[in-house]
Each structure stands twice: as C-alpha cells, then as structure tokens.
Amino acid sequence: MRAPLERNSTWPVLTAIGLTLVLSLLAVAAPLRLPEGQGFPAPLFPLIALFVWSVRYPRFIPPWVIFLVGIFQDLLTGGPLGMWAISYLLAFAIARLRTTEPSAREFILLVARSSLMTGIATLVAWVAGSLSIGQPADPTSLVTEGVITLIVFPAFCWLFARKRERTTFS
C-alpha cells in the first residue's frame, strides 16, 4: 500500500513539501500591482498546501510546521502577528478530531473536511484579527477569500484522490 516514493527516500518529498509551502506563501503575499488597484482576493494557498500534504504525508506536517507557515503568512502580508498561525492550528486540530484517517482519503470526505477547515480558519482569523484591532473587522475580504478557497479546494482534493488511487493500484 505504501507509495514507492516513500520507500525510496524522504528528501524528494521534503523538498516538494518545502517548495510548495514557500510558493503558496509567495502566491498569497506577492505584490501583483494590478491595474485595477488593490483588493485582489486569492485563495488561502498555504492552507490548501498544508491540507493536501497533511493527508498524503501526515508525518511531515507536524503542528510546528503549521505554526511556522501561519507566522510567515502574517509577516509577509503585514497582518497581526500570530493570526494565521492560530487559525491554521485550530483548523487542523478541530478538523482532525472529527475524522478517522483512512476513510478521510475518499473524495467526498476530503471535500467535507477541507471545507470545515476553511470555515474554521476564516472564522478564527476574523475573531483573532478583530481582537487584535479592538473592534469587529469588516469581514468582506476574509469571507471572499474563504469562499474562493472553498471553490478551489475540491479541485485539489480531486487531483489528490485520483493520484492516490493510481499509486495504490498500479
């Protein structure tokens, strides 16, 4: 049942994970300087990357990696420090409590779990950000980000579920 990549070497996987996480952070924080001005909403790429890798190789996504990704996202986007860290940690902690791992690899369950995670992450980010600025923040852009993430997530889940099938039965 084990994927061939895992048996051979750890390094390619680690490199792939590191690269994906870095790219996802850059995609969220890169200054695009769009002609329409600011406010271009992007999905929460780091959450997607963390989720996908945590299902495929859970042992390579320990809590401290989730924490670091969150902190870097805060630093790069200039948001309140610790906001995304706490959101991602809570999202992973809560979403994990509600699933049993092997069945979580089926597509529907993956989508359900990723949606739950996005919801929790967005909600916690809003609460943490509001606490940080001392009043309820305008949730529009956060909700937009969350919705876009929800839309994009199933595609990644589907890709992943397909990949998993191939590696299992080939």
């Binding site: 320990p62 420090l81 610790g82 706490i86 600025i133």
Partner: peptide, 26 residues
C-alpha cells in the same frame, strides 16, 4: 504514518504562543 502527531501539550503551547503574539502585536 497515517496520522498527524498532534501532541496536545505541544499544540496548546503553540496556540498560546500565537495568542501572545497577537496580544503583543496590537
């Protein structure tokens, strides 16, 4: 292999650190 190893103490510690950072970065 199939589980994220969420040591509860470690997780709580990281959550606490995040909360402290949010409070310190007001």
């Amino acid at each position: 292999d199939d589980t994220i190893r969420f040591s509860r103490t470690f997780l709580l510690l990281l959550l606490a650190i995040s909360a402290i950072l949010i409070a310190a970065d007001r």
